[in-house]
């Protein structure tokens, strides 16, 4: 981890930093500003959507700028694709300076896999393992591919967070209040 302190960029600068490198492969970049408190202090979030082909390079490029804090990877089932969103925060350590950086990438269900980022950010392991079992996204090169939350006898091809009809999951659903003895 070479954390050579680069000059801190603001939200616009950060978007430019990525756009200069990847040009049109960045499909969407939105800077969202909200205020809080009676002094109307601003806080900034960046929402980006990138093409899958540059995913790993993008993560590397981000780590080159600054070692980010990865909060979590969340995922949406968009029908044909699964959208993974990597929630980072950068520029922490100084008051009012932190930016939430959310990078989304689409993974098609037909080839549901993505490279691991554990080699760049070891702390991603837990959340990547969770994505494997909950959304069925295969993480290529993950150092540890065991299950995380689901029990060992849970059916293999059932992914609780997917939205399509899954008979395997429906069989498991229990309504606890029905079991109450009257």
């Amino acid at each position: 981890m070479t954390n050579t302190k680069k000059e801190q960029l603001d939200a616009k600068g950060l978007v430019k930093y990525f756009k200069d490198e990847f040009k049109t492969k960045i499909l969407k970049a939105e800077i969202r500003t909200r205020t809080a408190g009676s002094k109307k202090n601003e806080f900034v979030e960046i929402w980006m959507k990138i093409d899958k082909s540059i995913f790993k390079k993008m993560m590397k490029h981000l780590c080159d700028y600054q070692f980010p804090h990865l909060a979590v990877v969340s995922g949406n089932d968009l029908g044909k694709n699964i959208e993974l969103i990597y929630h980072f925060s950068v520029n922490f350590g100084e008051r009012f300076k932190e930016i939430s950086l959310n990078i989304a990438v689409d993974v098609p269900k037909t080839k549901c896999e993505i490279e691991t980022i554990c080699d760049l950010i070891p702390g991603a392991l837990i959340t990547e393992r969770e994505k494997q079992e909950m959304l069925g996204v295969k993480i290529i090169g993950i150092p540890d591919d065991r299950r995380l939350f689901l029990p060992k006898d849970f059916p293999e091809d059932v992914y609780p967070w997917r939205k399509d009809k899954q008979p395997g999951l429906e069989k498991l659903i229990r309504n606890l209040h029905e079991g109450v003895k009257k």
């Binding site: 809080a36 408190g37 806080f43 350590g93 100084e94 009012f96 932190e98 930016i99 939430s100």
Partner: peptide, 8 residues
């Protein structure tokens, strides 16, 4: 880092 509510 990113004050919310009244923390700012």
């Amino acid at each position: 880092d990113q004050p919310y509510f009244a923390y700012g």
